[in-house]
């Protein structure tokens, strides 16, 4: 199953992660490029992050102790 991230968009993948065997709480995915990028969902394992970085996406994992909102705002301001 795929999902399209439009150019210069930011997306938070929380609900698209199968959390049983995944080390992070959430993933903030940014498409800084000028083209659409299709990502594979749901996310099952850590390898997903590296595979999708190769497509040109900027991915920030959110750990359980992290402040999600500040990380997300940081990424959004970077994008802007």
């Amino acid at each position: 199953m795929k999902m399209v991230i439009r150019p210069h968009h930011i997306i938070s993948l929380g609900g698209y992660i199968v959390e049983w065997d995944f080390p992070y709480r959430n993933l903030i995915v940014v498409n800084p490029t000028d083209e659409h990028i299709k990502i594979e969902v749901p996310v099952f394992d850590e390898d997903w992050i590296e595979e999708h970085r190769k497509l040109g996406l900027r991915i920030t994992p959110v750990e359980y102790g992290d402040n999600y909102l500040s990380l997300w705002k940081r990424e959004k301001s970077k994008l802007e």
Partner: peptide, 10 residues
């Protein structure tokens, strides 16, 4: 109008 052939498509 849908980006079917975007990067990462099958």
């Amino acid at each position: 109008p849908f980006p079917d052939l975007a990067k990462g498509a099958k």
